[in-house]
Amino acid sequence: MKKIILVSNYSGLYGSELMLEKLYLSLKDDYEVKTYLNEAIPVPEEFSSSINAVTNRFNVVSKNNKRISLSSLMFWLKVFVKDKPDLVIVNISLIPEVFLATKALRIKSMVFVRESLIDYKHFFGIYERYLKLFCDCVVSNSRYTSSMFSKLDSMVISDCIDLPEKSIKIRLGVVPKFGYLGRMSLRKGVITLLSALNDSVNRPFELHLIGDKLSSDALFDEQYEELIRRLRLKGNLIIEHGFLSNPFEIVEKCDFMVAPSILPETFGLSVLECLSVGVPVIASNIGAYPELVSKNNGFTFFPNDSVDLGAKLNIALSYEGDDYASLSENAIFSAESYGFLVYRNNILRLVKNV
């Protein structure tokens, strides 16, 4: 049986970490798999156990700490000599010592790229040349992510979700319910959403905000609180749920979810999860979102444009009865090709051919 080592950073249960779990589950029945987690914060025991993980602070490279550590390189050399893997897969790619070690020991390596160029634009060119030189196989999680590369070929295996069993939603003209799922921050477009609702929607509605407000930006906090205050003064029901371990009890009650990111996202797991329960999505036309959202299952708007978003919110509100049911049905259908079984088959086919 082929031995595989998975390597990943851990900064919380976000998209990359969730996909690490899916990657492990895809491989564990066919291969001997062991995971090494480079922890930025402590890893929950339940998550560590679920992916057969060894956890510690193995590497030092990050956006604010751009260097290669000799001690980290020696660590990975010792690990690979001891474990003797046939393949090393890096789930998030900014761990250069791993690739130096695999190259030195002539071990096959694979990397899943999930980072956006916008976050690493100052050294992305060097990073791309490095991957081309030291990594055997580069995999991107969307066509958008793959398009960032100009000097190497990157195949696309889209991220996945567990598909729920859901029926088509209906909407019959009652008080509309909008929802937002994600971190409360400027780059996620929360101010754009609140501004559009204030300026463009002239009928009572509910707004469900799901996610932590982690911003340390005083200006963002001030704008956020003022816009929320104005919306409530107009008689709208604004519910700030904070972080929810199971947000979809709320999502399923919404008529539309809004994904207003200003900066490009390399995929959009939350968008896909909303579609999978039959909720149409109104998303900014940037990054990988247009790969998931179209006129068949929702609406798109220009990023950071509250006027265009406001127009799309009002168009969305005109969809009722059969028109809305068609959007909901298409939302469910569009998510089906991103289920775990499809992902697992793609991963197994890829690993077999490396």
Rank of each mutant, 00 (worst) to 15 (best):
S16I: 05
L23A: 05
G179M: 06
P290Q: 10
V281Q: 04
K22I: 04
I168D: 00
S146M: 12
S337R: 14
G189C: 06
V279L: 00
E225H: 10
I161S: 03
L233I: 08
S140Q: 15
D153W: 02
Y338L: 04
S326D: 14
F134Q: 09
R106T: 13
N56V: 00
E273I: 00
D83L: 15
F149M: 13
K151D: 13
E115H: 11
I126E: 09
L27R: 12
F47S: 07
S116P: 13
V54H: 12
N296G: 13
V54E: 14
S167Y: 11
R187I: 12
E115Q: 15
M74S: 09
L233N: 09
L152D: 10
K103N: 09
L20C: 04
L87T: 02
L272V: 03
P44L: 15
K82S: 06
L18W: 03
Q223I: 10
Y10T: 05
R229P: 00
E32F: 01
I282D: 03
N353C: 08
S270L: 09
N65Y: 12
L13W: 04
Y338G: 04
G339K: 01
I107Y: 07
L37I: 14
M110D: 07
I228Q: 11
T55M: 07
S72R: 02
S147F: 15
S8E: 00
R232E: 13
S216C: 12
S306D: 11
S215H: 12
R349D: 15
L233H: 08
L193F: 03
S147V: 10
N345Y: 03
I238K: 03
M19V: 11
V156Y: 02
L263Y: 00
P264G: 06
P260I: 01
L6V: 06
T300I: 15
N236G: 09
E273W: 04
G173V: 08
P303K: 09
N296K: 10
